[in-house]
């Protein structure tokens, strides 16, 4: 609105020096401003986001790439340019590959069950329930709880000696599991932490998409003799495709950047090691360790950029996979 007003006043000021000209010229000036207004002011309205994103998002991103070309100590007055040496060192770094495997293992153990459970939960919530809002708020509760509190509680539950989980396992007659020392067990414990927090959130997004599916389609399927399972796979799932793509891509981005959970899971308070032999150190945790514990900012920046590229790659792979999985014969969009 204010831009239109400014444009109008601008027009009046603009034609003052020319003096009383012919009426036609005044209207074209105005017309032109009106056209500019329609054409450009939307860009002006969205500009604040992009300006701020440029300052706090894009600039650090590019600056990190710049830093990664230096041997840059945290307290360093004259960092020296070393080209791609940080990247070369990174690809020969056994700890990096170990953290990469850890990250993917934790990501798969969390994201896959998470999305499947979210869809199933959403399907359950979509049936006729008493007090539906209560149930929906209920499954969102873990998401509302503080991540740090969650991490501390779960690290306690999975304590190898005095943890509740091992206590239960023993009562049931199973063997204790060393959730800290065993690599796979620690990944499972961390994945459970992630799933606990995010499943409900994703379920609500899927639920919203489910409710947007026209009833007629289900009714038509019923008339055609499809049972509830068949309807779920042939009607619901294909129509959820755009939402599933969104859920899978966001959980990929989140899943590959898991940081707080493994940091708090470590028995050693404040440790960035991710276990005694880095058995559950993720890439982000390694990046943090490189930057603020080993004070090697250049190397940490290289880790950050490699992680960025990996996330883009995996998100693309997921995008195409999800498209294939959730496609029926015909493409609707």
């Amino acid at each position: 609105m204010s831009t239109e007003l400014a444009a109008a006043t601008g027009a009046r000021q603009g034609d003052e020096p020319t003096g009383p000209g012919p009426v036609r010229s005044r209207s074209t000036w105005r017309d032109r401003l009106g056209r500019w207004d329609v054409k450009y002011s939307p860009y002006l309205y969205v500009a604040p986001f992009f300006v701020i994103f440029g300052i706090v998002g894009l600039f650090p991103l590019l600056y990190t790439a710049w830093v990664s070309l230096f041997d840059w100590d945290l307290i360093d007055d004259n960092p020296s340019f070393i080209g791609l040496e940080n990247y070369a060192a990174l690809f020969g770094d056994a700890q990096f590959w170990k953290t990469l495997v850890n990250t993917f293992s934790i990501f798969l153990l969390s994201s896959v069950p998470q999305v499947i459970m979210a869809v199933l939960l959403a399907a359950l919530l979509n049936t006729r329930l008493r007090a539906p809002t209560g149930w929906r708020v209920g499954i969102l509760m873990p998401y509302v709880a503080s991540l740090v509190a969650l991490g501390i509680i779960f690290a306690n539950l999975f304590g190898p000696n005095y943890g509740l989980v091992n206590g239960i396992l023993e009562t049931v007659g199973l063997d204790r599991v060393d959730w800290q020392a065993d690599r796979f067990a620690s990944h499972v414990a961390i994945a459970i932490m992630v799933n606990w927090r995010w499943t409900g959130y994703n379920a609500l997004i899927v639920l919203a998409a489910m409710q947007a599916i026209p009833k007629e389609l289900h009714e038509a399927a019923v008339v055609d003799g499809a049972g509830p399972v068949r309807r779920f796979f042939s009607v619901t799932l294909p129509l959820l495709r755009p939402t599933l793509i969104f859920v899978v891509v966001t959980s990929t981005i989140g899943g590959l950047q898991i940081f707080t959970e493994p940091k708090l899971f470590d028995a050693m308070p404040g440790s960035n090691n991710g276990g005694s032999t880095n058995q559950f150190q993720t890439i982000t945790l390694y990046m943090y360790q490189s930057a603020f514990e080993r004070e090697d900012l250049g190397y940490a920046s290289a880790v950050a950029w490699v992680l960025f590229l990996i996330i883009i790659l995996v998100a693309l792979v997921n995008f195409f996979l999800t498209r294939r999985i959730a496609t029926t014969g015909e493409d609707r969009r």
Partner: peptide, 18 residues
């Protein structure tokens, strides 16, 4: 006892005479 100093398990270790 294999209890990392200042961890939760270490705290519990004092209580359970580990």
């Amino acid at each position: 006892a294999g209890l990392v100093a200042f961890s939760n398990e270490w705290n519990s270790g004092f209580k359970s005479s580990a």
